Every structure is written in structure tokens, then in C-alpha cells.
Amino acid sequence: MSRLSAALKSGLRRLTPARRRKRAVVLNSLELIARIGYGARGFVYLSGGALTLLAIPGLIDGAAGTRGAISWLALQPFGRAWVLLLGLGLLAIVSWRLLQAISDADNEGTDRQGISTRVSQGFSATGYALLAFSAFSLLFHTPADPGAADVAAGHREAARMLSLPFGNLLLAGLGLCIAGVGVSNIVKAWRDDFAAHLSCSVELCRRVVPLARAGYMARGIAWLPLAALIFLAGIRSRASDVTSFDAALDALGRQPGGVVLLAAAALGFIGFGVFSFIEARFRRIRPPREIVPV
């Protein structure tokens, strides 16, 4: 370690003042992008959890996931400004996730565990990119009932898939893939060391890690009802069985004991949102050497 530190210090001394300033600008810019991304993610999940809690006693109409929360914000005063800022923030988390997945910003390595983590980060980037796209689309057209519009869009996409050769198997396979996303979040909730990438005190890390575990657990469980509905739609070849994430949460709440599960999911979303804000403040951001060489 001493040799490595000496080599790094020697390399930094050889940098000209102009190159040092340029390197500092790049470092600070990448760090700012990552922190904005974590903050935007936190705001979306915190909003979705709060709206879902309000939906349980009927204070608002229907539970809300991430997309539902953005759609709800779009209908509020200054809604387009909110949506624009959230869309840009989500693009920031997409950029950081791509750096993690492609350039191994977190030094996960190339062993089986490292590749698995980086592939997961790549899928996460895709998911947030789709969420950012849906946010930007609301700038041009905000439906009066976003929930109904999402369900109708799901019906159309399912019907289009079922019209393909072996479309029912493709739709059922999509349901299994979504179930896999849910299960992977549940596994991550138990397995990962969420404090490993935080630069905070031991006491603070000890307090916030349960928020991350609850959040990933809630995300995983919340995906399973939607996965089951899409899988059954494929098996039955019925596009009308496909619904949206928000409608699947509502269906969960209507089951026996579903109110308790829905409340737990909402609190988990809120916990995940709070933990995302913690990451926005305390996460160690390590830009890849390919982009910021020493």
C-alpha cells in the first residue's frame, strides 16, 4: 500500500497546474451528477411511498409507485417544472449507473460476483432511463387520469406481444423476468453490505442500513404482484389481464391482509427514499480511471 500511495502522490506531483484544475473539475462534476441522481431517486421513492400511504385510508385515489408519483406531481401546480427537474435528476442516476456498470466505478472487479453486480447496475440504468423517458413525455402530454392511461398502454403492449409467434410464451417470460427483478431485490436486501460505500460515522451507518434493507425488500415484494398478473396473462393469452405497477399495488391492497402488505411496501418505499438521500450526501463516489486518470 505504501508503494501505491507513493506512486499516486508522485503522479499527482507530475501533473501541471492546468491538468490538476481540469482533473478537479471533472472529478467534481461527476460527483455532483451522481449525488443529484441519488437525490432524485430518493425524492421519487419518498413521494411514491407517501402517496401509497395516503391511498390506504382513501385520502387519494389509488396507490402510486415511482411512475405514479411522477404522474401525480405533473398534475400539481408547477407540475411541468417538477417533472422536468425529476427527469434531469433521473438522467443523472442513469449516467452514474452506466459508469458503475461499464467502467466499474465501484471497483467490483471481473469475478462472478463483480460481473453480477455490474449487470444489475446496467439493468438499473435501463429502468431509470425508462422512468426518465416517461417523465419527459409528461411535459408534452399529461393525461387527466395517468393511472388509466398506463393500464390502457399495458393492454396495447400485451396485445401486440400476443400477436407475435409464441407471444403467450413471451408474455409469460416477461412476467418471470419481472419476478426475477423482485427476487433479486429481496436477495440484495439480505445479502449486501450497504454501509461499505458510505463515508459516514459507524453510528450513522448502523442506523441507516436498516432503511436500505427495508427499502430493497419492499421494492422486491412490490414487483411480485405485477409479475404474477403478467405471467397469468401470458398463460391465458389475455391482454386484458395485464395492468400497471400502480394498479397491481391496488390489487394487492384488496386481498385479505393486503392493507398490511401495502402499508409495509409504502413504508419500505419511504425508507428507500430516505436512504437514497443518505447516499446523496455520504456515498463514496469513485470516478473510473479511464475518465479521470491519475
Rank of each mutant, 00 (worst) to 15 (best):
F245H: 12
A55Y: 00
I221C: 09
L4E: 10
F133G: 00
I235K: 09
G122C: 07
I230P: 11
F269H: 13
C205V: 05
L174Y: 09
R219P: 03
V181S: 09
R156W: 08
L262N: 01
D250G: 14
L99W: 09
A189D: 07
V259Y: 11
N28I: 00
F136R: 01
I115V: 09
C200S: 15
K22Q: 11
F275W: 10
P77N: 02
A40E: 02
L174A: 15
G89V: 01
Y216T: 05
G49P: 04
L75N: 08
F275G: 05
A55M: 01
L198C: 01
A50G: 12
H197Q: 11
A24Y: 02
A148R: 10
A233D: 01
G89M: 01
L211V: 03
D250A: 15
R281Y: 09
Q121I: 08
L59A: 11
A247T: 08
S124E: 14
L12Y: 14
R236F: 07
R41D: 12
R41P: 07
A152N: 08
V260G: 07
C200K: 06
P143Y: 15
L130F: 11
C200Y: 06
G79I: 06
M217H: 05
D250V: 07
V274K: 03
D104F: 10
G114D: 10
A64Y: 08
S47V: 02
L99C: 08
I60Y: 12
N168C: 08
L12H: 06
L99Q: 10
F166N: 06
V259D: 15
L4P: 04
G257Q: 08
R207F: 00
R160K: 12
S103V: 03
L75G: 15
A158C: 07
A265I: 15
G268S: 12
M161I: 15
G127W: 05
S137H: 14
R20A: 14
G39A: 03
P210W: 03
L131G: 03
G65M: 01
G273C: 11
L229S: 13
G37F: 10
A152W: 09
A92G: 00
S95C: 11
L99Y: 07
G87F: 06
I291Q: 04
R286G: 06
I178R: 03
L252E: 00
L91H: 04
R156Q: 13
T126H: 13
R41W: 11
A159C: 07
A7P: 04
L53A: 07
S134V: 00
L262H: 10
A18D: 05
H197K: 02
L176H: 12
E31A: 14
V26N: 04
T243I: 02
R67W: 09
A152V: 00
I178W: 01
G147P: 00
R254E: 02
L261G: 00
S201Q: 08
F245E: 13
D145M: 06
I115E: 15
P225R: 04
G37M: 02
G215Y: 08
A263C: 13
G271L: 10
T243H: 04
L90V: 02
V25T: 11
A158Y: 13
F136D: 11
L170R: 08
D104Y: 07
A239D: 05
V94Y: 08
I93Y: 13
I270M: 14
L73V: 01
I56C: 07
A218W: 03
